[in-house]
Amino acid sequence: MTTPTLYLFCAAAPPIHYVAEAIENAQARGWTVCLGLTPTAATWMEDHLAGLEALTGHRVRSTYRMPEDTISWPAPDVICFAPITTNSLNAWALGLTPSWPVGVVVEAVGKGTPVVAMPCMNQALAAHPQVDRSVAVLREMGVAVLYGEGGWVPNPPGQGRPAEYPWHLAVDAADRFVPQL
Rank of each mutant, 00 (worst) to 15 (best):
T2S: 12
T2P: 06
P4C: 11
L6F: 13
Y7T: 00
F9L: 09
A13F: 01
Y18R: 12
V19Q: 11
A20F: 04
A20G: 12
A22R: 08
E24D: 08
Q27P: 02
A28W: 09
G30T: 11
G30R: 10
T32K: 06
C34I: 05
L35F: 07
L35P: 04
G36E: 03
L37V: 10
T40S: 06
A42H: 11
T43K: 14
T43L: 13
W44T: 10
E46K: 06
H48R: 15
L49N: 00
A50E: 15
G51D: 15
E53C: 14
E53A: 14
A54I: 11
L55C: 13
R59H: 11
S62I: 00
S62M: 00
T63W: 03
T63E: 08
Y64V: 14
Y64G: 14
Y64E: 13
P67V: 07
E68D: 12
T70M: 11
T70N: 10
A82M: 09
A82W: 04
T85A: 15
N87K: 01
A91Q: 08
L94P: 01
P98Y: 01
V102W: 01
V105N: 09
V105Y: 08
E107N: 15
E107A: 15
A108I: 04
V109D: 02
V109C: 01
V109S: 04
G110H: 08
K111T: 05
G112I: 10
A117V: 08
P119F: 05
N122K: 00
A124I: 11
A124D: 12
D132A: 15
S134T: 09
A136L: 07
L138D: 07
R139L: 00
R139D: 01
E140W: 01
E140K: 12
M141D: 07
M141T: 02
M141N: 07
A144S: 14
A144N: 13
V145N: 10
Y147N: 03
G148V: 14
E149C: 14
G150M: 15
G151F: 09
W152N: 02
P154F: 13
P156S: 01
P156F: 04
P156Y: 04
P157N: 08
Q159G: 11
Q159M: 12
G160Q: 07
G160S: 09
P162S: 11
P162W: 06
E164F: 09
P166G: 09
H168G: 00
A170D: 08
D172H: 04
A173L: 02
A173F: 05
Q180T: 11
Q180V: 06
L181D: 12
